[in-house]
């Protein structure tokens, strides 16, 4: 780890100034990803601005809006009564990620900003556009079993990135249309989660649209009609404590066995949490049934592009969505 200076700002304004005005300063909160990256010399800040004591931990519910402070711990969110009663999808997704210890450290803001887990990004012996622009993407012609199948069509792959966003929490936030509230040198702004994370394009080094020194203050969720029928299905190489091969966050608004509206978002398939608006459309207005779900899930991979080792995701994905929808609807799947 490179030497750095450790600083504790007094308040949000001071914190934002310290990072926005410094050449190479970083916020640190839970540290579960940043310390990891610093140990591998992937992040080499000169200054670490510790924001853990700033008053951004509250989880509040007022007039139909849940506001989760950026420094709220993942475990606090997953255990929160209102989250569990009104936004159970979020609690389920958070619980599917990492481990009890990591959820006790990681913050909501940090989770939104965690970097990909692509092996090529983490080992400086490999080229990686995300780590260093224009060095090439080793994953494109390499081992890409875990890599993206969506959001790639416009990319020049030589300069881009096929890594996926690793978060579980963000998949649920995408399904629930979260708003990210930030404070930066230009003041406060509200960013819909769909706009918050970027597709890699020719700047795969940038995961989000945050500007230098811009700090996440909170995440807001509007009350919705989806809390009765939700499921988060995470497919991975072991039963727990592993990143998703693919994951699906699904939520259904069901009235008398008819789907009024649906939300479907995926993890492990793109540079950002991936909403499937076409699948949602295919579900809306239909009766809940295995047939409805199967037909809708089939739409999911229409735009997919695969590489040498991840072609199986085309086959797996509709099955995962189907399984998740069946679960959300409380249907017993019948096979064969």
């Amino acid at each position: 780890m490179r030497p750095f200076q450790y600083i504790r700002p007094k308040n949000v304004k001071e914190a934002v100034d310290m990072v926005s005005l410094e050449e190479n300063a970083r916020f640190i909160a839970g540290g579960t990803n940043l310390v990891d990256l610093m140990k591998r010399n992937i992040e080499t800040p000169d200054k670490l601005v510790d924001i853990t004591h700033l008053p951004l931990k509250k989880i509040e519910y007022h007039s139909g809006t849940l506001r989760i402070g950026a420094l709220a711990l993942n475990s606090d969110v997953a255990e929160h009564a209102i989250v569990n009663s009104r936004f159970p999808l979020l609690a389920k997704a958070i619980d599917a990620g990492a481990s009890g210890q990591l959820r006790n450290m990681a913050t909501v803001g940090g989770n939104l900003l965690q970097r990909t887990r692509c092996a090529y990004f983490y080992d400086t012996a490999f080229p990686c556009n995300k780590r260093q622009l224009e060095t090439g993407c080793a994953a494109v012609g390499g081992i890409n079993r875990m890599h993206a199948i969506f959001g790639l069509e416009k990319n020049d792959l030589e300069k881009s990135c096929i890594a996926v966003h690793p978060s579980d929490m963000c998949v649920a936030l995408a399904a629930l249309d979260a708003i990210i509230i930030t404070f930066g040198p230009k003041g406060e702004r509200k960013i819909p989660i769909q706009d918050f994370h970027r597709l890699p394009g020719n700047r795969p080094d940038l995961d989000s649209i945050l500007e230098k020194g811009e700090l996440i203050l909170a995440v807001e969720l509007k009350s919705n009609t989806f809390q009765q029928h939700t499921h988060y299905l995470k497919i991975r190489d072991r039963a727990a404590y592993a990143f998703a091969i693919v994951s699906a966050a699904v939520a259904l608004d069901v009235q008398q066995d008819q789907i009024r509206a649906a939300r479907v978002a995926l993890g492990g398939v793109a540079h950002k949490p991936w909403r499937l608006f076409d699948v949602e459309k295919a579900l809306a207005g239909k009766p809940i049934s295995q047939n409805t779900f199967r037909n809708a899930a089939a739409v999911s991979v229409a735009d997919a592009k695969t590489f040498e080792h991840n072609a199986f995701k085309i086959k797996l994905l509709p099955n995962v969505i189907l399984e998740a929808l069946m679960n959300a609807a409380g249907l017993e799947p019948s096979y064969d």
């Binding site: 600083i7 007094k10 008053p55 420094l71 709220a72 711990l73 606090d76």
Partner: peptide, 14 residues
């Protein structure tokens, strides 16, 4: 639920 920290009383620079 996480508790609040009195930020203003925190040391600024260690």
């Amino acid at each position: 639920m996480a508790e609040e920290f009195p930020a203003e009383n925190e040391p600024a620079l260690l």
